[in-house]
């Protein structure tokens, strides 16, 4: 009888514990759905008022209540893409250094240092960028960019140290640790026998890396890059400090611009009118949808790679 009771209480305990675990696992799905629903509901006024025009209108006039998202979307995407262009070669270099080149005693400390770079809060990057990097850029770098590369329209603008290019540069430094750590993990999954066959026929280290390792890990690297892109798109504080917050679209990368996250950070608490607030929330919704798609894609690519990699 006593044994039977104990068995029963075990069953209740099991059901309870599993139930609680299941509840919190489901809460992630509910949370995700709730974010979409709440953002959609709050931006409904703006969606109804501006319709699709919101996506391609360049208006941003809080006084007359006319809003368009194009400058912010443009700034978000362009700054992130430039950041990727800067960060990709450097990240791959770091990953190659850590997997193929560094002596064992150096791998640990350098790997840790790169990871510490990822753990610095983004507001510190922003502040450092504004007070240290921006004056340096405006004094020593941007005038030369304009002098020597100014014949290309994108390398023009005001040498203030604040603008699209400085923001993208800080973003690049911030996403290098993410891309390089994913790339490092993927490089490690290349079967040694493939690399050894390369060395066996007399290939140099670089030939093995460029003709065996990189082709083998291609889809994983693309995944890592898209993951970095997802990070860069949503990054707020560093961009807010450096991008200059101008709702004008300029092809010159040294000019100030804005991004979705910077617009939100700067204007959200000042928005009193319903339509202003609703437009800002719609910007947030657009950002969320873009990053959701980009990160989902990255995840699928990285997963697919690690699956075939194990086979």
């Amino acid at each position: 009888m006593q044994v039977f009771d104990r068995h029963k209480s075990y069953k209740i305990g099991d059901a309870l514990f599993k139930g609680i675990a299941y509840f919190f696992a489901l809460s992630v799905i509910v949370l995700m759905a709730l974010i979409f629903i709440v953002l959609l509901k709050e931006s409904w006024l703006s969606i109804k008022t501006f319709g699709f025009k919101f996506l391609y209108s360049t208006a941003w006039d809080p006084v007359s209540g006319d809003f368009g998202a194009l400058p912010a979307i443009f700034g978000t995407i362009v700054s992130s893409l430039i950041a990727i262009i800067i960060a990709l070669p450097i990240s791959l270099g770091i990953a190659i250094f850590l997997t193929e080149m560094a002596p064992k005693w150096l791998k640990g400390p350098i790997g840790t240092a790169i990871e510490l770079l990822a753990s610095i809060p983004s507001i510190i990057y922003g502040m450092w960028g504004l007070f240290i990097l921006a004056p340096l850029l405006s004094e020593y770098v941007e005038p030369y960019i304009i002098d020597y590369l100014g014949f290309i329209p994108i390398f023009r603008g005001a040498p203030m140290g604040i603008g699209m290019l400085p923001a993208a540069f800080i973003l690049a430094i911030m996403i290098i640790p993410f891309i390089s750590s994913v790339a490092r993990d993927i490089f490690r999954m290349v079967p040694p026998i493939l690399k050894e066959s390369g060395y066996g026929v007399g290939a140099t280290k670089w030939e093995v890396i460029s003709k065996v390792v990189i082709p083998y890990t291609k889809s994983g690297i693309i995944g890592a890059v898209i993951l970095g892109l997802g990070r860069a798109l949503g990054e707020t504080m560093a961009v807010t400090f450096l991008i200059g917050n101008s709702h004008d679209i300029s092809i010159a990368l040294l000019d100030p611009a804005t991004s979705i996250s910077a617009t939100l950070a700067n204007e959200f608490t000042e928005a009193v009118e319903d339509i202003y607030l609703s437009s800002l929330i719609e910007l947030g919704l657009i950002l969320f949808v873009i990053t959701f798609i980009v990160l989902g894609l990255a995840k699928i690519l990285i997963n697919r790679f690690s699956y075939t990699g194990r086979r």
Partner: peptide
């Protein structure tokens, strides 16, 4: 996805 979702 939520890990890398924009915190803002």
């Amino acid at each position: 996805i939520l890990v890398s979702a924009p915190s803002i």
